[in-house]
């Protein structure tokens, strides 16, 4: 029997909740339907915080859902918005994860 992946479930629920927050925020903040190369400072802050939090070894692995919630904000923003912010956040998260893996060795 397959065990329920509760940890992944928490991560996905956090990502979706963050996405909902990002979508609501971007629809309230911006009126234009599709704009590229526009950086939102709150979304960028959220993405950087999410990226930094991802590799941090917090108890019970809580860093992953928290990080995905914060990364979910630019991820869920309306089309065209939040792209650069999301790429920045994910890049920081991957880099941090790799560095943590190297230090761990």
């Amino acid at each position: 029997m397959e065990e329920v992946p509760y940890h992944l479930l928490c991560c996905i629920v956090s990502l979706v909740m963050g996405g909902f927050l990002g979508l609501t925020y971007s629809y309230k903040r911006y009126l234009k339907p599709y704009v590229e190369r526009c950086i939102d400072r709150w979304a960028l802050l959220s993405a950087i915080l999410g990226g930094v939090l991802f590799p941090l070894p917090l108890p019970y692995g809580i860093n992953y859902p928290l990080s995905l919630f914060l990364l979910g904000v630019p991820f869920g923003m309306r089309p065209g918005y939040g792209r650069i912010e999301l790429i920045t956040g994910v890049s920081i998260a991957i880099l941090g994860y790799l560095i943590r893996g190297l230090i761990g060795r």
Binding site: V4, P5, L8, L9, I12, V13, V16, G19, F20, L23, Y34, F75, G76, M77, R78, P79, G80
Partner: peptide
């Protein structure tokens, strides 16, 4: 819930990829 959220996100990703290939912005993955 897990299966629905993963399946829903993947179907959202599917729409997004199809839209990007066809030169449209596409809806959010959510």
């Amino acid at each position: 819930l897990y299966a629905f959220l993963v399946g829903g996100l993947l179907l959202g990703l599917h729409r997004k990829i199809v839209a990007r290939i066809q030169g449209r912005p596409g809806p959010p993955i959510l």
